[in-house]
Design a binder for these strands. Structure first.
Length: 572
DNA sequence: GCCGTTTTCGGCCCGACTGTTTTCAGTCG
């Protein structure tokens, strides 16, 4: 899967074109194509092998010129247009341009006026007070550049949704306690339930916006105020997470929520639709001349276009507006429809809590059933169970099941390793004594795509395997996905009635939304599991459901939204 | 560079904030 590196080529081209004095729309076109390539679940190299340039052109945002560049990149590993641009500008200038507060124009001025070619040059120039002398720059800008360099040196990355969301809730609670706040919500990519967010976007309405902003910028956990105006502010929190707030009038709540939830392409699509009707859409509402058509509710914004309300998780400009127009939006699965969790560890392997505590947590969530799935023998680091130990563990699970009778059904399962070559870590006669088997990869991450795919498909074809867990094994921020032909895996899973997992462990979130959508389209059933290793982690289900919704999944697609009888029949 | 239920050419979302300016360009989301 080389979609990421192909996308990077076009991000780089866009950055460099921006520094030339040329057409400002070309970078937009390149970035659009890059985002599409990055987000699509299909392997772009595979599309190219199947249908060449013509097939590539079917990707939204990819026309003849970009398709030919992809073709050259996949063929030769380079793109002439990019190499030509790279010769025009110093290598380090793009990094200068990416600093907070700087952009293509200022980076270009710094290079031409002071010969600055990278961040080290820039730092020296700022420290030597050379920048303040430039036209259009000043003392404050010079200081801000030094601040931005410091931020860059500290390094920033995306924050997991399971970390960011509670911080957002905490901030909103603080705001309610210390300012006059009418309505408040988390917006942005967190509301869209992206697995990791670059910042936290918050929206409130208040009769005293200036006071609300002051409360926000003076919260205890604010490390730095980046900007603060009369209706919006940006701060850096002590956790280094950036938080943006927007304060609006109640009459603009819906428009503001729509605008601040995004994503950008979804919003541009809606605004273009407004334009073609002779209207204007912004964060205050939809306007026909001076007259406000909508704005108080988000439903009203969509209704003005003749559309039903589109759930935030779908707002990625992946056909959701077209589907809404046709009345073809899926009915998405909801958290309250989840009846159980099949991927739960106890202190018998690498969890921290005993079976009873995990089961009680499931009862507290109102579940109808919960499955215990500790690690298998090969996973020594996780204290994997030998066949005999698993038999004893199963007996303990049965005993806990009796203890909780009438409250919840406790199923005995395993998270069984898939060994190199595709054999399972327990023989079939051990697996058949269990209620179900979760199978997953925890070793040999670097096999070739062919070997890895063959390995997993073979495991999926084992009749005792019910769920293939964390399918790509990626760890957000620390481990890339394994090389595997997901489409082949999904086809095998659909054919054998094996569920594919949406693993809601915060740094896994695997499958992600687009891949889950592809699994559904391939005819797969999915299982949304938390992979909990402590009782508090069962609550991560909300983020798993968010990811499932990003995959356009409904309750019919999710095995743990089904009643137990139906689950048992599916597992059999 | 892409795209078309107004277009194959002429468009391409929209507003807030900041710093450096005397009215606005650059950047950001």
């Amino acid at each position: 899967m080389r979609n990421g590196e192909v996308a990077q080529v076009f991000y780089d081209i866009a950055d460099l074109i921006e520094m030339t004095e040329g057409d400002r729309f070309r970078p937009i076109a390149y970035r659009r194509a890059a985002r599409e390539i990055e987000a699509m679940p299909e392997d772009i190299e595979k599309l190219w092998r199947q249908g060449g340039v013509d097939r590539l052109r079917q990707v939204p945002g990819v026309g003849q010129a970009i398709a030919e560049k992809i073709d050259q990149y996949l063929r030769e590993g380079k793109v002439d247009a990019l190499e030509k641009l790279q010769k025009e500008f110093p290598k380090g200038l793009v990094a200068v341009m990416r600093l907070r507060g700087l952009g293509p124009k200022r980076a270009s001025v710094l290079w031409k006026a002071l010969g600055i070619t990278d961040i080290a040059d820039l730092k020296r120039a700022a420290e030597n007070r050379q920048i303040r002398r430039l036209k259009g720059f000043g003392e404050k800008t010079e200081q801000k550049i030094l601040d931005a360099i410091k931020l860059h040196e500290e390094g920033q990355s995306r924050t997991l949704i399971a970390v960011a969301w509670p911080i957002g809730e905490e901030i909103l609670a603080f705001m309610r306690d210390h300012a006059r706040i009418d309505r408040a919500a988390i917006a942005g990519s967190a509301r869209r339930m992206r697995e990791a967010v670059g910042d936290l976007d918050l929206l409130v309405t208040s009769p005293e916006p200036v006071a609300a902003i002051r409360v926000f910028t003076t919260m205890p956990r604010v490390k730095e105020v980046v900007l603060a105006g009369e209706t919006k502010a940006t701060v850096i929190l002590d956790s280094r997470l950036q938080a943006d707030i927007r304060v609006l009038d109640p009459g603009s709540w819906g428009a503001g929520l729509q605008y601040f939830t995004g994503n950008k392409d979804h919003n541009i699509h809606l605004r273009t639709m407004a334009q073609s009707r002779g209207w204007k859409l912004d964060e205050y509402g939809i306007f026909e001349g001076e007259r406000k058509i909508a704005g108080e509710t988000e439903e009203g914004i969509y209704a003005a276009f003749g559309l039903p309300w589109i759930p935030p998780e779908l707002r990625e400009e992946n056909g959701e507006i077209e589907a809404a127009a046709k009345g073809a939006l899926p009915r998405l699965v909801e958290l309250k429809e989840i009846r159980g969790d099949f991927h739960v560890h106890t202190n018998r392997s690498d969890g921290v809590d005993p079976i009873e505590a995990m089961v009680q947590a499931a009862v507290d969530l109102g579940y109808e059933y919960v499955g215990i799935s500790d690690h298998s023998q090969s996973l020594v680091v996780a204290n994997g169970l030998s066949p005999d130990a698993l038999r004893m563990h199963r007996a303990r699970i049965r005993a806990v099941n009796r203890e909780f009778e009438g409250k919840i059904a406790v199923l005995a399962g395993t998270e069984c390793d898939i060994l190199e070559g595709g054999a399972l870590d327990y023989p079939d006669d051990v697996l058949k004594e269990l209620d179900y088997t979760v199978a997953s990869v925890h070793s040999k991450f670097t096999l070739s795509e062919e070997e890895q795919t063959e390995r997993v498909v073979k495991a999926i074809q084992n009749p005792f395997v019910n769920i293939y867990a964390h399918p790509t094994t990626r760890l957000i921020g620390s481990r890339d996905p394994i090389e595997i032909d997901l489409e082949a895996v999904m086809e095998a899973a659909a054919a054998t009635g094996t569920a594919i997992e949406v693993n809601a462990y915060p740094n896994r979130m695997d499958l992600n939304g687009p891949n889950a959508r592809m699994a559904k389209e391939k005819g797969c059933i999915l299982a949304v599991d938390t992979d909990s290793h402590a009782h508090g982690q069962l609550g991560n289900m909300r983020f798993g459901v968010g990811t499932a919704r990003r995959g356009w999944l409904g309750p019919e697609d999710v095995v743990n939204a089904w009643p137990l009888d139906r689950v048992r029949a599916f597992f059999r």
